[in-house]
Write a protein that binds this DNA or RNA. Structure first.
Length: 349
DNA sequence: CACCAGGTCCCCA
DNA sequence: TGGGGACATGGT
């Protein structure tokens, strides 16, 4: 690995909605060590994912922010065959421990060390997987979010249109997150559980328009503030563990397990992907969740989550929720759209 | 102005 | 254990 660790303290930035400029601090070279094919584009960019402002993608590059403890980092990634090269940017005090943390986080978030060959073997024998395999082979589960962050995303997806999910996400990230600029791109960054610990359910409801889920967010913050991620990965029955949090049901728990804990056997069924899978697996317009899950596990024992991922992303491939950016004008327009956030009033009704 | 949205909780047979 | 309504908000 090449190293260019920038050390030296930086003054603490005050928490406001101003744009933080991040400087280049490191280059990480992350090998894909897991068996099976690797497809960088479809690993980094998922056509079914809604716009958060936390990441941006062109056909060959991905930008994404990560919170590494209190540090705010921006990462620009591309791949050379089975090597992912990540340029790291930050305005904080970047230490060697941050480098290790980030290398592990990126490797895990994009499944670089995960074995895809078993799933490919199973899928090759299933006719309905033919299209997905041809278009997406080498795609791995991606989850740049940690457990807290992905729980918030899943919470905001519950029982609302994606338009409103996007609105609530924008409110939260504008009010409690960060806006950063690095490598020519402007992105939002997450808030940590500690950073919203002082915010009441009332504020989440009134100011951030979260509706009845406003009560759940403080519970998430409290739960994850003192729950180490390692224990969440090692839990015996992940989905049952997560459902102990009020506001987390089968869907949200499965998202957390399949994404943040990377359990390839879990798959979060919502009404949309339930219909997609019913059509693909049961030749029906819709089906009971139990029937869909049963068939998925029957065909892909141990890899139901991966199979669901391939089928759902394939469905969205020709009409992505958030299309790829083209390097020129799209990126400029993207930056302008996010830069406008700074000037906007905090609480548009 | 009803109705409903990429769930979850709670209550009641 | 399982069905059915309520829940906040904003868009048709």
């Amino acid at each position: 690995m090449t190293t260019a660790i920038r050390t030296g303290p930086k003054p603490n930035q005050e928490q406001d909605v101003s744009l933080r400029q991040l400087d280049h601090a490191d280059t990480l070279e992350l090998p894909v060590t897991g068996d099976g094919p690797f497809n960088f584009l479809h690993t980094a960019w998922k056509p079914s994912h809604y716009v958060t402002g936390l990441e941006a993608h062109t056909a060959s590059r991905s930008w994404r922010t990560f919170r590494v403890d209190d540090l705010v980092t921006g990462v620009r990634m591309h791949a050379e065959n089975r090597l992912v090269i990540a340029e790291v940017y930050t305005d904080g005090d970047y230490k060697p421990e941050h480098r290790d943390h980030l290398a592990r986080r990126l490797t895990a978030s994009y499944g670089l060390d995960e074995d895809l060959s078993q799933f490919i073997e199973l899928a090759t024998d299933v006719p309905t997987m033919r299209g997905p395999l041809e278009s997406l082979s080498g795609m791995r589960q991606s989850c740049p979010e940690d457990h807290f962050e992905i729980a918030v995303v899943a919470l905001l997806l519950q029982h609302v249109t994606v338009a409103r999910t996007t609105q609530m996400t924008r409110n939260l990230l504008t009010h409690y997150g960060q806006l950063v600029r690095f490598d020519g791109i402007t992105l939002r960054a997450w808030f940590t559980p500690a950073e919203i610990a002082h915010v009441s359910a009332e504020i989440f409801k009134e100011q951030d328009r979260l509706g009845y889920r406003a009560k759940t967010l403080p519970r998430f913050a409290a739960f994850f503030r003192d729950y180490p991620a390692e224990e969440l990965t090692a839990a015996h029955d992940l989905e049952q563990t997560f459902q102990q949090i009020k506001g987390v049901g089968p869907y949200t728990a499965a998202i957390m397990a399949s994404h943040a804990s990377r359990d390839t056997a879990s798959f979060g069924l919502d009404v949309w992907n339930r219909k997609i899978l019913a059509r693909r697996l049961l030749s029906a317009d819709d089906a009971a969740p139990e029937a869909v899950n049963h068939r998925l596990n029957e065909l892909f024992p141990g890899h139901a989550g991966t199979a669901g991922l391939y089928l759902v992303e394939y469905e969205y491939l020709n009409a992505p929720v958030a299309p790829l950016l083209t390097p020129g004008g799209d990126v400029d327009a993207w930056n302008e759209a996010l830069a406008g956030v700074v000037a906007e009033p905090c609480n548009p009704r």
